[in-house]
Design a protein around this nucleic acid. Structure first.
Lengths: 193, 193
DNA sequence: CGCGACGTTGATTTGCCTCAACGATTGTGG
DNA sequence: CCACAATCGTTGAGGCAAATCAACGTCGCG
């Protein structure tokens, strides 16, 4: 009964009920993949073909600014989906990279498989509607953070709201996500003591 | 056959097919409202109860920063949905205001009505999944803009990508949305000539 | 007409970046 | 197991983009 997708099945069940045969259909649609640290799931210019669910480990999504600096836009830890919808929906080349920060175990849903699965399991539309809605709410929240007050304040709120990220993720990546330089984060930290 | 919801029905049909009786069900679930300039649909601390579709006119969503300045996070013109999902999903007090910029005609879907409608019209889950997915992609795109290059460049990209906004919306609101002061926008514009 | 809302322009200030040098830690091959 | 390089974090000096503050022009509207 134990299978590697258990965290995902539990996540789905938080939103919709699942019959035994539906579990089978869903499980058959998934691909399992174990990925080493710093491997890429998506690179700039590639067309994104899948949605990634993190069973264990940690991912980041980022793009390269014109000045050559990496700009992180999202992290994903256990129980988060990550993909570039802009590329996935319209099959356009992506402007983003998706890369593992730590060794990770993933449940992968390919675009075509998923769209077939929806016809079989209509309630899954609700699950993904709610998941994307939640992600969108998080993006709105993120905008709220970005524009609230000073950089120092922003760092303080981030590290109190998401201490699990501050522990796991290197400081220069936190800096990138918050939109400033590693040096500046360092100076903020020394000021906070 | 002509009814005020036509733009919305057309929008839905871009994503899913609609039978005549489904049109009736959907239409019965909607509320029509004509709203004057500068009226509020949501204020800070209120719990958001509905999702708003713009039939005509223009809305903005914003919050008040700690220093008292209004920070706009989204605009909505014809054929866009706007709501605070964070407040709507978990029935929390909102941190945002939603206000009309121009006189507007709205199609309103109340939270409870919508959830009943989903059981009746399962395909509507797909419609909203795709709409929210599209909104989320736009939010990702917005983050990309925010962190790409300088303020001047950002203004330039915005005004070439969304000229319809620059025409309709007062300059100080564009400034707020882009995250800088009205004075600065003014200076950029003079530099661009 | 006169007032309030909006936009412009200039002088000054400041938050964060840039650049550079220097510890601390990690990991890797001999 | 050590030597050495690479990676990551810290600290300080100087610079720049955008904010702040203030004054003035202009338009629309009661």
């Amino acid at each position: 009964m134990n299978n590697p997708y258990d965290p995902l099945l539990a996540h789905v069940r938080k939103f919709i009920p699942l019959e035994a045969e539906e579990v089978t259909a869903l499980t058959n649609a998934l691909r399992y993949k174990k990925v080493k640290k710093k491997e890429f799931l998506l690179r700039e210019q590639q067309v994104c073909t899948a949605n990634y669910f993190v069973l264990s480990g940690c991912l980041r999504m980022y793009f390269i600014r014109e000045d050559g600096v990496e700009q992180i836009t999202q992290f994903a830890i256990e129980n988060w989906w990550l993909t570039d919808f802009q590329s996935l929906d319209w099959q356009q080349p992506s402007r983003f990279y998706i890369q593992t920060i730590e060794t990770a175990e993933l449940a992968i849903l390919d675009r075509d498989t998923l769209s077939a699965l929806f016809d079989h399991l209509p309630l899954l539309e609700r699950y993904f509607r709610l998941v994307v809605q939640r992600a969108f709410a998080a993006a709105q929240q993120n905008l709220f953070f970005i524009y609230s007050s000073t950089g120092e304040e922003r760092y303080r709120r981030f590290s109190t709201s998401f201490p699990q990220f501050v522990q796991r993720i290197p400081q220069y990546m936190i800096a990138s996500y918050l939109g400033f330089t590693p040096e500046f984060v360092s100076k903020i930290k020394s000021r906070l003591k």
